[in-house]
């Protein structure tokens, strides 16, 4: 071995020791990054294109429903082969309702029952089918606004519902997919403001450059105020004064937290908000008309006629007025006296 090699030896030994000594940490004993599971989401199919009304269809009054039955069959004795007979055989009426529209369809957290003006309409239908115990024969399905038409199209025997009572506006486009009862309530778009504020209408809000107006995203209510021809100042500066929230109840939260000066929506819904927050009031005149109807599957004309007869009876018997008084006047949501019920229009041909 040469001298040169001998001199190299300590260095080689040192490196060997270093490698052996440091080799111990080669195995990965580190803390791993947190695991984030991903859930395979079913690809959302684009919603089918909404059918549009033809000029002739649009010309017809959308409130026009099928004629009511001349006389109601006795409860528990529904005509064979009818939709009502199928419901009677099933033993329960499946109704799609709102769970959080106070005064119209909301769960009472004390009793646990769903109650409101819309619910009274459902109960009247159930009593007409089953008799006095009809109230106990309703299966409520709390559904979203977006589920109202699809649940009717699916049908009660396929995860859907028999009837929708969910502050639903009758219009031509919806008639293309479902059928409606005659108009049972006339609502309209209004604004809710703080009582201490000076705003008395949507025009006052339009005029004040500091006023922010909240409405639920995707609603006809927000479409209305986004119309820059009607409300140029509200839509100035990119429409930053229009506060969009996923749900109209989030608008009440936004207003209570000072993030909006007003909410715009159907006066029925706003009346429920005023009942929940006595510092607020519904003001101004209706600036749109929203005729409400009960939704029924398109091909169930017999059931529409039956429901229209039930609603007729409710109007003439004073039941409609009782419900109006109980839910809208006694709660303090609205003031004044019970108005005349809306006059339904019939004569639609199947």
């Amino acid at each position: 071995m040469s001298r040169r090699d001998t001199r190299r030896r300590p260095l080689g030994v040192a490196l060997a020791i270093a490698v052996v000594a440091l080799g111990g940490c080669a195995a990965d004993r580190h803390l791993a990054d947190p695991v984030q599971a991903t859930v395979a989401t079913t690809p959302t199919t684009a919603p089918a294109a909404q059918p549009e009304c033809t000029a002739a269809q649009a010309a017809e009054d959308p409130r026009r429903s099928y004629d009511p039955l001349a006389s109601l069959p006795a409860p528990g004795k529904m005509p064979a082969g009818s939709t009502m007979a199928a419901i009677q055989r099933r033993g329960r009426l499946i109704a799609g309702v709102s769970g959080d529209t106070l005064l119209f369809g909301a769960r009472n957290p004390i009793s646990g029952a769903i109650e409101g003006f819309d619910i009274d309409m459902v109960k009247a239908v159930a009593r007409a089918i089953f008799g006095a115990d009809g109230d106990q024969r309703i299966e409520y399905r709390v559904i979203t606004y977006a589920q109202r038409l699809p649940k009717l199209e699916a049908g009660a025997d396929h995860g859907g519902v028999d009837l929708v009572a969910h502050t639903m506006t009758i219009n031509c486009r919806r008639w293309l997919r479902i059928a409606f009862s005659g108009e049972y309530f006339t609502a309209g778009q209004k604004v809710l403001v703080n009582r201490s504020a000076s705003f008395r209408s949507i025009d006052d809000l339009e005029a004040d450059p500091a006023a922010r107006v909240c409405a639920p995203e995707g609603s006809t209510n927000i479409d209305e105020i986004r119309n820059a021809d009607k409300y140029p100042r509200l839509n100035a500066d990119g429409g930053t004064r229009i506060v969009a929230k996923p749900d109209i109840t989030d608008c009440l939260v936004a207003m209570q937290q000072g993030d909006a000066e007003a909410i715009t929506g159907d006066d029925t819904v706003l009346a429920g908000f005023a009942a929940q927050d006595p510092n607020t009031a519904v003001v101004g005149e209706r600036f749109t008309d929203e005729p409400y109807g009960l939704g029924i599957a398109k091909n169930r004309v017999d059931f529409v006629r039956f429901v229209n007869a039930v609603l007729e009876q409710l109007r003439t018997s004073g039941g409609w007025a009782d419900s109006y008084r109980h839910w809208l006047l006694d709660t303090g949501a609205l003031t004044g006296t019970v108005p005349a019920p809306p006059v339904p229009i019939y004569g639609r041909s199947a």
Binding site: D100, T101, L102, P109, T249, L252, G272, Q276
Partner: peptide
């Protein structure tokens, strides 16, 4: 809100 039966509680 919930104790008073107000559905806005759910939004909170």
């Amino acid at each position: 809100n919930n104790r008073q039966g107000f559905p806005v509680g759910a939004a909170y």
